[in-house]
Simulated assay, not measured.
Amino acid sequence: MSFTDIALRNAKSDDKQTKLFNKRGLFLLVTRLQGKLWCLKISARRQGEAALIGILT
């Protein structure tokens, strides 16, 4: 999925956190309080972790 401006601005979350991924490990994390955080999936020693890049306002 490629991100579009409209899709990112209209992203909502219900009771749980929601992740919107693209093909290269970048994702938008939408929190329960409707906060939006840019994250990048990083794999080191086969353990999946995410690095916070910034906040979408």
Rank of each mutant, 00 (worst) to 15 (best):
V30M: 02
D5Y: 11
T4C: 02
L40F: 13
D15K: 06
V30K: 01
C39I: 06
A11L: 15
I55Y: 14
L37A: 05
L52I: 09
Q47Y: 14
K12V: 08
F21A: 06
F21N: 10
K36T: 01
E49Y: 08
T31G: 04
N22R: 05
G25Q: 07
L20D: 02
E49W: 04
D15G: 07
R46H: 10
A51P: 00
W38V: 03
T57C: 10
G48T: 13
L8A: 06
K36I: 01
D15Y: 03
T18Y: 05
L29P: 00
K12R: 15
I53E: 06
G54L: 09
D14P: 06
F21Q: 11
K19C: 03
F27V: 04
C39S: 05
R45M: 12
I6P: 00
G35W: 08
S2F: 13
L29D: 02
G25V: 06
I6V: 14
S43A: 03
K16V: 02
F3Y: 15
D14G: 08
K41Q: 13
L56R: 01
K36S: 03
T4R: 01
D15N: 07
K23P: 09
M1P: 00
A44I: 15
D15P: 00
F27I: 00
K23F: 09
I55H: 07
S2H: 13
D15F: 04
I6A: 10
L52W: 11
L20A: 01
I6E: 15
I55T: 13
Q17I: 09
A51L: 12
R46W: 13
G35H: 12
L29V: 00
V30C: 01
M1V: 02
L52T: 07
L8D: 05
R32F: 04
K16D: 03
R46S: 10
F3N: 06
I6T: 14
L56A: 01
N22T: 03
E49Q: 12
R46L: 08
F3L: 13
R32M: 00
L28S: 04
D14I: 14
A7W: 03
R32A: 08
L33Q: 12
Q47N: 14
V30F: 03
N22G: 09
L33M: 11
Q47W: 13
F27E: 00
L20I: 05
K41I: 10
V30A: 05
R9E: 02
K19V: 03
E49G: 08
L40N: 09
S13V: 04
V30L: 03
R46N: 13
L26N: 03
K23S: 15
G54A: 14
L28H: 05
N22H: 13
I42R: 09
S43C: 09
K36Y: 00
K19D: 08
K23N: 14
D15T: 04
A7F: 04
N10C: 07
A44S: 13
K12M: 09
F21E: 08
